[in-house]
Nucleic acid binder design. Structure first.
Length: 422
RNA sequence: GGAGACGUCGCAUAGUCCGGUCGAGUGCGCCUCACUGCUAAUGAGGUAAGGGGUCAAACCCUUCGGAGGUUCAAAUCCUCUCGUCUCCGCCA
């Protein structure tokens, strides 16, 4: 939810942001109108109610005829108060639904445009020249089969398309990646967390996933619970309705399964485990003072880069354009790993600065020097397991189909230097 | 799944039976001041959030887990709901 007071002050800034996202500009005007109406209705209700309470206090003291007279007076007042209250409630609900429909105000530094208008910030690492090395690139599906690490066929048999089993070395690799990620995060000041993957509507709503992203969320109707698409949801909602005390930023890193319906991506990335309905992920999350959020965003990006560098995977960083931001994000950086079989960079991690958008919805604030203050939330992927496996297998493959294990990961895999073909 | 108890201002509690003087007392914690060689102790005062209003105040409204209802009036009565705890059953 955006800051209504700020919108009141400068509606044009919000309009500009909506335009940059390619979303409704006139929604801003509707909010302004609804806001004026609300304040009028609020004043009406409040003065009637104040009157009612004042007379009520007299009723309590009065006796006999005097009391009867007051009762008669306040009886009609009571009806007026009720009418004013219900009018206020309707206007309030209307305003709320309009404000909730507004996406976060984009960071002016974010490149304006659609999906393809991102800006490449940097490229890191060296892509291998497989032709020069003298062998044809295998994709992660082939490698996964050779190693006995990924079983897609049986994933489909048991659960349908976009499901998989990690088997043998694949299963151990996931655990190794997760441990490396969690250990790294803890060293960097994150509190390790294992959060619930099923959440109530309030948590989903509060993090902004029931808006335009709703069609990609699994919903368990009989229990009215949602399967989270990212640990961002239970981590953000962890402090829902709280005023944070003490030192900020407060950083958490969670290991959790992620479930995504992938509606609207039919036919996209159908091969392998690049785009699946379920995967596991280590996610970073930060509750941060508003004026430190931009620096914190850079920090999260830095942690993501360090992880990719530890895995020796070539990647680039892009500054995602306004039209491609999630509704909660003011700015987003993606790390895209080089995928040799596709001869292009593909997203493996993503970090967003949600400024105060989520914390307003979730009613999270912090006690600062000047009292209770709003707070910024930021999230970033440390390791999305399946996509990391794709990048790892493909970039570190050897001529015979075996895969070199990067040094940083070896301690978590019994010191082995390679995944060998079975 | 069955039976019961309970959700109050950071924490712990009072208030609920018998509706108004309760937006709410007390203790602890925290903040300010005084006293003290320092700390501690003691004394005085302050200490929920959100909204409206104001140059700033004053002031007003809302919130006693949540949602409804009864009433002139609800922390207090009624209904539903969520959560916590205890016992039983079941289970990893």
């Amino acid at each position: 939810m955006i800051d209504l007071a700020a919108l009141r002050q400068d509606p044009d800034a919000v309009k500009k942001s909506q335009a940059a996202r390619g979303e409704s500009v006139e929604l801003v005007d509707q909010v302004v109108v609804a806001d004026v109406a609300r304040r009028a209705a609020l004043g009406e209700f409040e003065s009637l109610r104040a009157n009612q309470k004042a007379i009520g206090a007299q009723v309590a003291k009065a006796q006999g005829d005097e009391k009867q007279a007051l009762l008669a007076e306040t009886k009609t007042l009571s009806d007026q108060v009720k009418a004013a209250e219900s009018a206020l409630r309707d206007i309030d609900a209307n305003l709320d639904s309009l404000v909730l429909a507004l996406s976060n105000v984009v960071d002016p530094a974010a490149p304006v445009g659609g999906e393809d208008d991102f800006v490449v910030i940097k490229e890191v690492g060296t892509k291998r020249d497989f032709a020069a090395e003298g062998f044809a690139v295998r994709d992660h599906v082939e490698i996964g089969e050779l190693l006995g690490a990924i079983d897609i066929e049986r994933g489909a048999k048991v659960s349908g398309s976009r499901f998989y089993y990690l088997t043998g070395p694949g299963a151990m690799l996931e655990l190794a990646l997760v441990q490396l990620a969690m250990n790294t995060a803890q060293k960097n000041g994150f509190i390790p967390m294992i959060p619930p993957a099923l959440v109530k509507p309030a948590a989903m709503e509060g993090t902004g996933f029931l808006g335009q992203a709703a069609e990609n969320v699994y919903h368990l109707e009989s229990d009215d619970l949602y399967l989270v698409g990212t640990a961002e949801v239970p981590l953000a909602a962890y402090h829902m309705d709280e005023i944070l005390e003490g030192v900020l930023p407060r950083r958490y890193a969670a290991f959790s399964p992620c479930f995504r319906r992938e509606a609207g991506s039919h036919g996209k990335d159908t091969r392998g485990i690049f785009r699946v309905h379920w995967f596991d992920k280590v996610e970073m999350f930060s509750f941060c003072p508003v004026d430190e959020a931009v620096a914190e965003h850079e920090r999260l990006l830095g942690f993501e880069e360090e992880f990719l560098q530890a895995l020796e995977i070539p990647y680039r960083v892009i500054d995602v354009a306004t039209g491609d931001l999630g509704s909660s994000a003011a700015r987003k950086f993606d790390c895209e790993a080089w995928v040799p079989s596709q001869d292009r960079y593909r997203e493996v991690t993503s970090t967003s600065n949600c400024t105060t958008f989520q914390s307003r919805r979730l009613k999270i604030r912090a006690r600062g020097a000047e009292g209770v203050e709003p707070i910024a939330t930021l999230n970033g992927t440390l390791c999305a397991v399946t996509r990391t496996i794709v990048a790892l297998f493909e970039n570190h493959q050897e001529a015979d189909g075996s895969v070199r294990i990067p040094k940083a990961l070896q301690p978590y895999l019994g010191g082995a230097s390679h995944f060998k073909i079975k």
